[in-house]
Design a binder for these strands. Structure first.
Lengths: 322, 322
DNA sequence: ATAATATATACTCAATTTGACTATATATAC
DNA sequence: GTATATATAGTCAAATTGAGTATATATTAT
């Protein structure tokens, strides 16, 4: 028996780094218009249904929708994850249908030209404010998140140990250091603890009354967390950063983009030693003119690095002291 | 307009390591019965359609199908990738429908009890023989693969440079070392070069007349390659191996499982130094009795390692000399 | 019983990589 | 000219890795 009434949605987490922050492209119109009045229609990811007769591959379908909704022609695209839990999407409630959404990650360069048709770049850390440690430990961790997590941990005596362990791993509550890659673990924990509004929308838990971070339509914040986790992990072993940079750049520019994505400050001298000794970049011979202090040399990505090194990524020599 | 006639398939790459080889669970019956006579019906992955009214989540649907088809109750499961290209599945040809398949990876322990209802464990390297370097460089690389790849590279003068570069990265044809993680890159290159039979089945290329490795139904060999690539990568930073081992094990047993998966021989002393110094395992106090030489201490996974280390994996100190 | 063989485990040592600095150079802003 | 901002070179100890040697304790063959 063939399954009836399945719709496949294609969602794009399109990221760029501008003005020192990782940004995600959001839309307000589109498929969700009918479910909310125009004024408080939630921010959403570019989205479109997969249409088998029109789209030869899933990725081509995604590219078409993004171009149609935002005017942006995507370069680097990779598939993230497929989300299919029941009741993710309000459109399911009316009929008995099911919407399965395939999330994609796309990386675009600063100032990629596109007609801005209802699309807007938003700082990723508006949605996930606990992930930005560049100016030190975010105060909202100790002010809101940890107290609320503690309440959640003791709320269910039988699960107390497992909950405490999960919180300890995800948020480095005990001795271990903050792991920049556990973005999704942290989001999912906050969701289960009822600390993000979508948990209440989905009626998972109503105990905690605090809520942190800007909300997104449906499960789009989870998709963003999935994307950021992927980028932070992959940046170390694949030359992803260069998809976000102009063809030539200074080492400081490169470092700032890596810092924006990973959410931690890096040790400048050690960072530059890593990328140059690994021969991931090479000098172009030109110098940067718009700098404040001493002019910096302009570098470019060395494509041969992919052939020479098995893990051509950037490494994160975290700076301890501020 | 809602998309018409989409079916979602759930496929499981179920892996175990037995008798020194990574194995994948295969079936011969099931959904594919109608498309081939019983005798030369191809080996396939356990498969079932996603049924929205029956399955609350995609993963639960997969678990149900696997249990129904193989009698196996899965433990560790993770989603791999969603495959949706046109003409992946012969069932599409009859009507204009589309089958989108979500691939999952599952890891089970040696001797997991299950009723063998048409299911069979097959050595993964039967399908991907060029991936097993434990007994040195596989001869079929120089005998068949490289000559055929060379013909493919020069066949299209305009793409020659890109093809040569891709081959160089995937197969370490030039100076760089064999990268155990590039399993999918290598499979995809062989597919494009027409060196695996499914390429001819799909009429991608018919020029090369050699074909390497045992074939799988549909695009199931690609799914296996995706799974092996994932395991080889993830084993280094997540404690996956222990899903494949009995609760207690000797360090040699652990090493052999890692070697089977990664397809390379490891330096024994350095391997043991890594896992013990990282405190990934701890002694149980008991000794192994069934060994040949000096009895080995029995170890177990140290769960606290996940909290203490940000990358609790095993590391691959490759042995150079045989 | 003894030798050969297989495996376990301890230990060494040089080379490389990393973390945390110091020092110096070359711009612009005031 | 001084303060300030940034770039870049170099130092040095600690930790990690790669490639071994040495020794211990079992079983199997003779």
């Amino acid at each position: 028996m063939a399954a009836l009434d399945i719709n496949i949605g294609l969602n794009a987490v399109i990221m760029a780094v501008t003005e020192g922050a990782p940004r995600v492209l959001t839309v307000h119109k589109g498929i969700l218009s009918e479910y909310a009045p125009a004024e408080d229609r939630p921010t959403a990811l570019p989205f479109g249904p997969f249409e088998p007769n029109r789209h030869r591959t899933l990725e081509l379908g995604l590219r078409e929708w993004v171009e149609e909704q935002t005017g942006l022609s995507l370069g680097y695209v990779e598939q993230l994850y497929t989300f299919g839990d029941r009741n993710r999407d309000p459109r399911e409630r009316a009929d008995g249908s099911r919407v399965v959404s395939i999330g994609y990650l796309a990386l675009v360069r600063e100032n990629s030209p596109f007609r801005t048709k209802d699309a807007e770049w938003v700082n990723c850390y508006d949605f996930l404010p606990w992930e930005d440690w560049r100016k030190g430990r975010p105060p909202l961790l100790d002010q809101f998140i940890f107290p609320a997590l503690d309440r959640w941990i003791v709320a269910e005596p039988e699960e107390q140990i497992q909950r405490a362990e999960r919180a300890s791993i995800a948020f480095a509550t005990t001795d271990s250091r903050w792991d920049v890659e556990r973005v999704l673990d942290r989001y999912e924990l906050l969701y289960e603890a009822g600390l993000v509004v979508e948990a209440k929308r989905d009626a998972v838990l109503k105990k905690n009354e605090v809520s942190v971070g800007r909300s997104f339509a449906l499960d789009h914040r989870r998709m963003l967390a999935t994307a950021l986790a992927r980028v932070r992990g992959k940046i170390k072993y694949r030359p992803l950063v260069f998809e976000l940079l102009a063809p030539t750049f200074t080492l400081l520019k490169l470092q700032n983009v890596v810092e924006a994505l990973s959410g931690v400050g890096l040790h400048k001298q050690n960072f530059r030693r890593l990328v140059t000794n690994n021969r991931l970049v090479e000098q172009t011979g030109n110098m940067d003119t718009e700098s404040r202090g001493r002019p910096a040399a302009l570098f470019q990505f060395r494509r041969d690095a992919v052939r020479e090194r098995s893990q051509p990524g950037v490494g994160l020599p975290v700076r301890q002291s501020p």
